[in-house]
Design a protein around this nucleic acid. Structure first.
Length: 752
DNA sequence: AAAAAAT
């Protein structure tokens, strides 16, 4: 009966069959054929559900009709990406449509009843026959057709996926959408969902994996005693601050693995029981609305230590609690960029901040933002602050840097980035989160889904502003800024602010105050620069020689393929190196960065994904195996070393024909260095590397993290070099890759 | 011009 799923025997999506329609958008196709019915999307979770369905139901999936529908899906997907590429054409259309779109979503209120019933029956197992045959056409006709185009199909899947989770806790009756509005006000108490809403954030933010033991005992013991508000603080205080920099990514990786893979098994035992036990506790003692939480916390201030009288942060006008918290980490003297921008930002002005790499810009915009958001009231789905960053890693870093500070200010924050599970992000938004730290794509996605509404954003921050304003990012950034109220405060920060930013500045900033603590050139005095002109044939061996040294090294290359290739070459020559680029799964990216931070892999071979903002302690050498494309890139790449006053060297390898361009670039970048001819073994090279040479014996990357949670499955997705689909057919929120070591196979990004 | 950013 069951042939292979057309969709996947091997987990891959097959090529579309309907070539004819491949470049036709759904809307176009609909226009041509009004009878056209959207391919159903409910089939996406097939992997997760199928095995749970009674066999008799399963059979129905392989009717011709259903198969065809499923084959339609890829075609649809292509449409969507086509649409993405056409972004430029669409934003206007989109934006105009947005209101309408929202309305449509609100209109749903009329519908949920039957929808939900549909869905619940779906859950009960009669879905296949029922849904398949009846619901689609029914729903589709009812629903306003026009909007469908805008709403990605996968929305539906996602939605139903977490709704399902929610639902499993009962109270289906209480859930209809109209509750949405009330929700933030305190219907919460009644609703088990509250429980869910709270828990994830707790899980997410604070539990270092190594604390896991603590946590579980902690969980069981402390939890029932209430005082949830104490918990995070407890955790946070215990955590040695100094380690933070080394650990965040590490935690995250574990966490996601844990969450994604473990949860399904884990939940069966613990979660429901927790829910049940928790009821009385929840009802009676728990304080579960935000304001109460705030006041409670205010009543029991934690001793954050004393602040010296001459603490200069206090002088900038920051709240005592914040100053105390900073002081506890030994941060008592503002960097110039902070001293310059904080007062203006606190005064509510729009600020353009430029400070050299590693000069503390994160706090420069972070502290005023937290100050502003503290004490306000955030409605469900309507965050009041937004920090946009260009890469996921940077988003994580900013999040982790601000988190302890946000905590003392009683500001909730949430990382919104791609490659991470949707449900927790949506839950957090629904619960109401003050400040988002986001990469543009995912945030737009969530806004389109209606999970987030930027209409209440008081502070919008662009980190790496000039990069956010370049061609690739601009549309997304303007889309997001357009959604924020124009009267809101806007802060733009970068090490290089140039003409590209003008458009954003003119459009979105009112009377901006500009602070440039440096010229925007390479003025970090502790950084030395070397330009080496080399023979093409020597590139590999020279790179290996340079990278084979004590201390952390980042090797920058131009392309993702190049990153993979050079990392492999280095390992073949005995240099422990790993590649980092955007073609890897987020899990791989996290793991690689963790290994680089914890020292198990001292050489990182990266594309420009790591060029900006990423802070790793003690990177003492940056090698540019491919010269940067422009002077700004040079500065940002170079800025990974010599951070916060440390020392560092930047070596750029140049093929003869790249020499001229580099000289020009060096001038624009303010780099004082003359190209020098170099060969492997040269004195200069030896000097830079401290004399150590690659062993010549191939090395292998360290094994994935040893922590494997029992019951298998854990870590499969990210941990193995050959991530099998295995039995973890759940958690399909993560990036889906068929396994070949996490490298892209679709070639999509490599085409010119 | 590549990379990044949503699935």
């Amino acid at each position: 009966m069951t042939q292979h799923d057309p969709e996947s025997a091997d987990g891959r999506i097959k090529k579309p069959r309907h070539k004819k329609h491949q470049n036709q958008s759904y809307g176009e196709r609909l226009a041509a054929d009004p009878a056209y019915v959207a391919p159903r999307t409910d089939s996406t979770p097939v992997k997760g559900y199928r095995s749970e369905q009674p066999r008799s139901d399963r059979g129905q999936r392989s009717t011709d009709r259903n198969r065809d529908e499923r084959n339609d899906r890829p075609y649809n997907r292509d449409d969507r990406s086509g649409a993405r590429n056409n972004r430029d054409d669409r934003p206007a259309f989109r934006r105009d449509d947005r209101a309408q779109d929202n309305r449509a979503r609100y209109n749903r209120d009329d519908r949920p009843q039957y929808n939900r019933d549909d869905r619940s029956s779906y859950n009960r197992g009669d879905r296949p026959s029922y849904n398949r045959d009846e619901r689609p056409s029914y729903n589709r006709d009812d629903r306003s057709q026009g909007n469908r185009d805008d709403r990605p199909q996968y929305n539906r899947d996602d939605r139903s996926r977490f709704n399902r989770d929610d639902r499993s806790q009962g109270n289906r009756d209480e859930r209809p959408r109209f509750n949405r509005d009330d929700r933030s006000q305190g219907n919460r108490d009644e609703r088990p969902r509250f429980n869910r809403d709270e828990r994830p954030s707790y899980n997410r933010d604070d539990r270092p994996s190594y604390n896991r033991d603590d946590r579980s005992s902690y969980r069981r013991d402390d939890r029932s005693q209430g005082e949830r508000t104490e918990r995070p603080r407890f955790n946070r205080d215990d955590r040695p601050q100094g380690n933070r920099d080394d650990r965040p990514q590490y935690n995250r990786d574990d966490r996601s693995r844990f969450d994604r893979d473990e949860r399904s098994q884990y939940s069966k035992d613990d979660r429901p029981r927790f829910g049940r036990d928790d009821k009385s506790y929840r009802r009676d003692e728990r304080v579960n609305n935000r304001d109460d939480r705030r006041s409670e916390q205010a009543e029991q201030p934690v001793d954050l230590g004393t602040v010296a009288d001459d603490n200069q942060f206090a002088a900038l006008g920051l709240a005592p609690r914040l100053v105390q918290r900073l002081a506890r980490d030994g941060i008592t003297t503002p960097f110039p960029i902070q001293a310059a921008t904080i007062p203006d930002a606190l005064a509510g002005k729009d600020v353009l901040g430029r400070g050299q790499t590693g000069s503390g810009k994160t706090l420069g915009f972070g502290l005023p933002t937290l100050m502003r958001l503290s004490g306000g009231h955030t409605e469900s789905r309507r965050p009041r602050g937004m920090i946009l960053v260009p890469t996921r890693e940077l988003a994580m870093q900013v999040h982790d840097a601000l988190e302890p500070l946000a905590h003392v200010m009683n500001v909730s924050l949430k990382l919104i980035a791609g490659g991470l599970p949707y449900p927790k992000q949506i839950d957090a938004l629904r619960r109401g989160v003050d400040l988002l730290i986001a990469t543009p794509g995912r945030l737009i996605d969530l806004c389109e889904q209606g999970a987030a509404d930027l209409g209440a954003v008081e502070v919008a921050v662009l980190d790496e502003a000039d990069h956010m304003c370049d061609m690739g990012f601009m549309p997304a950034v303007t889309t997001l800024l357009d959604m924020t109220p124009p009267e809101g405060q806007r802060l733009l920060f970068s090490a290089t602010l140039d003409n590209d930013v003008d458009k954003i500045v003119r459009t979105y900033l009112k009377d901006p105050v500009q602070h440039s603590t440096e010229s925007g050139q390479a003025s970090v005095s502790t950084m030395e620069h070397h330009l080496l002109v080399i023979e093409p044939a020597h590139k590999q061996s020279l790179t290996a020689e340079l990278a084979s040294r004590d201390g952390r090294t980042i090797v920058f290359v131009r392309t993702k393929l190049g990153a993979d290739r050079i990392a492999t070459q280095l390992r073949d020559r005995g240099v422990m190196a790993a590649a980092l680029h955007g073609g890897l799964t987020q899990g791989m990216r996290n793991r690689t960065l963790d290994q680089f931070k914890d020292g198990s892999v001292p050489v990182l071979v990266a594309t420009d994904v790591a060029a900006r903002g990423i802070h790793v302690d003690d990177v003492t050498l940056v090698v540019q195996a491919d010269p940067p494309a422009e002077h700004k890139d040079y500065l940002h790449r170079a800025g990974r070393t010599a951070r916060a006053g440390g020392k560092g060297a930047v070596v750029t390898l140049l093929l003869p024909h790249q020499r001229r361009g580099m000289i020009r670039m060096a001038e624009s970048a303010g780099v004082k260095a003359d190209p020098v001819r170099a060969r492997p073994g040269d004195e200069l090279v030896t000097e830079l590397t401290g004399g150590s040479k690659p062993s010549g014996y191939p090395v292998k990357l360290p094994a994935p993290k040893p922590q494997r949670f029992n019951k298998g499955g854990g870590g499969k997705r990210y941990g193995s070099t050959r991530p099998g689909r295995g039995h973890d057919s759940r958690g399909g929120n993560g990036p889906r890759r068929s396994g070949n070591g996490g490298r892209r196979t679709d070639g999509k990004s490599y085409q010119h």
